[in-house]
Write a protein that binds this DNA or RNA. Structure first.
Lengths: 353, 353
DNA sequence: TTGATTTGCAAAAACGATTTTGCATCTGAT
DNA sequence: ATCAGATGCAAAATCGTTTTTGCAAATCAA
């Protein structure tokens, strides 16, 4: 009845069609006005007003996909950084920069330098609810950060239909970038070489694949070389404050240590304060080794010795792998291990770096 | 001649049409295969193979805009964070989180919780070259960070045709979020209340709108209260190392100070080291005030007193303004001043916080 | 008045994908 | 031999835009 072809029930978001109907003009005129082309397209001033009013009244927001499709030139490679909300995000920056740098350097000529980077976030364990993840209609390729075991199980069940690089996670069928597995054992060796015998490791809980590997490597190598197990100090989260609290509680409990391995620099910084407050000197009383995940650990007091992989290296390698998959015809899904870098500074008794 | 309608010269990126031509099938079949719908669409196995081979051979990458347009449901609000490459980026994280939080909290119901966040980066001073900026076909709204004077001039000349929020920059016609102007004078007051008389400020160069305001406010208020000008220490960049170098050079030059204002916490941290190496105690010899732009300044040794606006508050306010403009019918382009927060810690002689 | 311009806009043709529809051609059962 | 159903695919419709084309009505020049 009233349902003529023109009216086309205005459910959902306003479109040019809706505005055209509301203003009683054609969609071409609407588009011309909305893009400020009304002068060269010779739209009458009162028509311009009618259209503007209708657009404002309907709360019109253009559909970016449609705009780009129609007028977006080539430029359409969309890369995504997918990470969980809960994760420590400073890492994300490195990936953004690395992706942009890799594209700018022409590592993926097809894009002709034009592409977009999106950030998608999901609640830990709910990766599968991320819109566009399975259909592949939100991005052309993705780097996945900070997934949980549940997310990993999902990824294993449902292979994503586009190039993906996992960071610090191994799942069959996916390319991955992981840190070298010897970080924990190397930390133990550094402390032991510095003549430390009563070791401890401080870590957050729950452990991730990566932090678990660090802790295990440290415990194992420490026990191997010293014949006695290291203490394990569990912090609630990976924050400085949590590290401080955990360390303080540990020191109050009594065990004496002379070497500490912190699985994140944030924990190391928190531990620094607890150690100092407890009257312990770094490194003379307790030597500390971190992992190098803070840019500013050279400016800790004393500067923090660290052994780990740089975020930058991780990000660069991940970008490289992603673009390689994007461009490559082959179905290679390599796992790349990023070599560790060891930076000896004053916190382990070495000269400041 | 050979240019039949079907072949449609395969210039540019491969499309379903190109694959269809190469494999000698229809584009519908290509789509079915590429989306793994070939079983329910009853495509013959050998046809599937032909299509897959053609797609791989052509290096096919789907056009995300087209995919989303066709099958993307509602979900199409695209928000962008536009920032310069050169900028200190940790700030970006806060904006991503704040945008997501604001959307999740239903501050913009039209999007029905579905939207995307993009990161666009440009070389300082070249904002105008960013694709999609003027045509508005890359995002529905943007937060602009770290523009230079040149970029600002461009923005002034060419108003962007979608909602925009500027951060720490004022340009007529744009909404903006800026830090309270009294940060510099408050820093001076804190140091003077702590009985400091020989003040200095350390800052990067070139000064931005914001850092200039901090320095000026500090110098002015210091001179007003003390009757003598503060020293000005110019660091090359805003990095810790630059701060360290500048501070060390200054101390070597001889002037004695007992109060220091650092216009970024990175500079403060660098200055910390220089001061300590020079045998000066913080705060007894020199009190230090920073701006609170590092999350971890409470864990500096000693914890850093700061007066400034929190990145989080800045980001939340910017997100709020952006969504308000997106939803609102009115053309309000407010400038919101984010109030400063003052955190007194040990570096200015207060008890640790 | 009449032909040539201008003005104002509607209608149609893209953009690149997905999904629906429709139509041959085979296969198998009777 | 005939018909029903399955099989395999091409063709068309659609998503929301922008741009091009075309055409009537109004204006101007003679």
């Amino acid at each position: 009845m009233g349902k003529t072809k023109l009216t086309k029930k205005p459910r959902g978001r306003a479109t040019v069609r809706g505005i055209a109907a509301a203003a009683g003009v054609s969609i071409g005129s609407v588009s011309s006005v909305l893009n400020n082309r009304h002068v060269e397209r010779r739209i009458a001033p009162e028509t311009v007003e009618k259209i503007r009013a209708a657009a404002a009244g309907l709360g019109y927001l253009p559909n970016i996909s449609a705009k780009r499709l129609r007028s977006g030139g080539k430029n359409n490679v969309v890369l995504a950084l997918v990470t969980s909300f809960e994760a420590p995000i400073p890492l994300v920056n490195h990936f953004i920069i690395a992706l942009r740098a890799a594209m700018a350097a022409g590592k993926f000529p097809q894009a002709e330098g034009a592409f977009s980077v999106m950030i998608e976030m999901f609640p830990a364990g709910r990766l599968h609810e991320l819109p566009g993840l399975l259909s592949g209609d939100h991005f052309n390729a993705a780097i996945l950060l900070n997934t949980t075991a549940e997310d990993d199980a999902f990824l294993n069940r449902s292979p994503l239909p586009y190039p993906v690089v996992l960071v610090n996670r191994l799942i069959a069928g996916y390319a991955a970038v992981v840190e070298a597995p010897e970080t924990g054992s190397r930390a133990a060796e550094i402390l032991i070489r510095a003549k430390r015998r009563r070791l401890a490791v401080i870590h957050g809980s729950p452990l991730t694949q990566t932090t678990r590997a660090r802790v295990n490597g440290f415990m194992h190598r420490g026990a191997e070389l010293l014949g006695q197990p290291a203490h394990e100090i569990k912090s609630g989260t990976l924050s400085e404050l949590a590290g401080y609290d955990a360390m303080r509680a540990f020191l109050k409990r009594g065990p004496e240590i002379d070497g500490l391995y912190a699985v994140s620099d944030a924990l190391a910084l928190g531990a620094y304060r607890a150690l100092k407050e407890h009257g312990l000197k770094i490194p003379s009383d307790v030597a500390v080794v971190g992992v190098g995940d803070y840019e500013i650990s050279p400016f800790f007091d004393p500067p923090l010795t660290s052994v780990g992989v740089s975020h930058q290296a991780l990000a660069e390698e991940a970008s490289r792998l992603l673009l390689q998959q994007l461009g490559g015809v082959g179905a290679a899904r390599p796992t790349v291990t990023v070599p560790l870098t060891e930076t000896l500074r004053a916190s382990s008794g070495h000269r400041a770096g």
